[in-house]
Design a protein around this nucleic acid. Structure first.
Length: 202
DNA sequence: CGACCGATCCTC
DNA sequence: AGGATCGGTCGT
C-alpha cells in the first residue's frame, strides 16, 4: 500500500449537505505523514456542526474571529482548535465559502502506524489499540495534529482523507457530546458512529 | 488588561 | 466527581 498514490477524497465529496458528509465520512481513512512515519485510521465517529444557525457552532450567527476564520473558507480544509488549554480538536470544513459548517472527527480505528500513535500519546505497548484514538483530542495527539495544521488542505501530503478498504457497518446516531450550552440544538441527533465499534469514544 | 470558560481527558 | 491548564473571546 503506497500512501502517496492513495486517491484523495474528491472535492465533490464535500459539496453536499453537512449531515450527509458527516455520515459518509464513517469508514473513510484519515492519513498522516511525518518524518516519524505514516499513520492511518478509519473514521468511526463524527459530529456535524451544520451552519451559522447551529447554536453549538463556534461560528454561530456567523461569528467570524481569528479562530473561526477557516470555517468561512474552502471546503476540504482542516479546522483545528485548542480546547481546555491543553488539547486540540480536528474538524473538516464542509460548508460552502462564507457559510461555516464543519464535521468534527471524534474517533478513528487505528489501521497503520499503531506504534507511532502509542509513542505520540506517551503510552506503553500494553494499552489496547481501541484506546489510542477514541476521542477527538486523543486522536489529535495520536496523529500529531496541532493548530499548526489549521487551514491545511486535506488533499495534500501531510494530512489527508481517502477512501479506504471499507468493511460493512451500521450507522448509529445520537446527540452531540459536550454541548449542553446549545439550547434547542443540544439534543439534535447530529453525531454519527459505527454501531458496535469498540473504537468510538466512551 | 482582567475575567470567564471550554465540541476534553485523566485520576481519584 | 473534580482538577488540569491556557488560548480565545469579550467586556471594561
Amino acid at each position: 500500500m503506497n500512501l502517496t498514490k492513495y486517491a484523495r477524497l474528491p472535492r465533490v465529496f464535500y459539496e453536499r449537505d453537512p449531515l450527509v458528509v458527516s455520515k459518509d465520512l464513517l469508514g473513510k481513512f484519515l492519513a498522516r505523514k511525518t518524518k516519524e512515519g505514516e499513520i492511518v485510521g478509519e473514521i468511526v465517529e463524527t459530529e456535524a456542526y451544520v451552519g451559522p444557525h447551529d447554536k453549538a457552532s463556534h461560528a454561530h450567527n456567523n461569528k467570524r474571529t481569528s479562530r473561526t476564520l477557516v470555517q468561512f473558507g474552502e471546503r476540504g480544509v482542516a479546522y483545528v482548535y485548542t480546547i481546555y488549554g491543553m488539547y486540540h480538536c480536528f474538524c473538516i470544513v464542509v460548508g460552502p465559502r462564507n457559510t461555516p459548517a464543519v464535521t468534527l472527527v471524534r474517533a478513528v480505528k487505528p489501521i497503520r502506524g499503531v506504534e507511532l500513535m502509542r509513542r505520540n500519546r506517551g503510552l506503553d505497548e500494553n494499552v489496547p489499540i481501541n484506546k489510542l484514538a477514541d476521542g477527538p483530542s486523543k486522536l489529535c495527539r495520536a496523529f500529531g495534529i496541532t493548530s499548526k495544521l489549521n487551514g491545511l488542505n486535506l488533499s495534500g501530503e501531510d494530512l489527508f482523507l481517502c477512501r479506504g478498504t471499507q468493511s460493512a457497518f451500521e450507522v448509529g446516531q445520537s446527540a452531540r457530546i459536550g454541548i449542553d450550552y446549545a439550547e434547542e440544538h443540544r439534543s439534535v441527533q447530529w453525531r454519527f458512529y459505527e454501531k458496535d465499534s469498540e473504537f468510538v469514544s466512551k
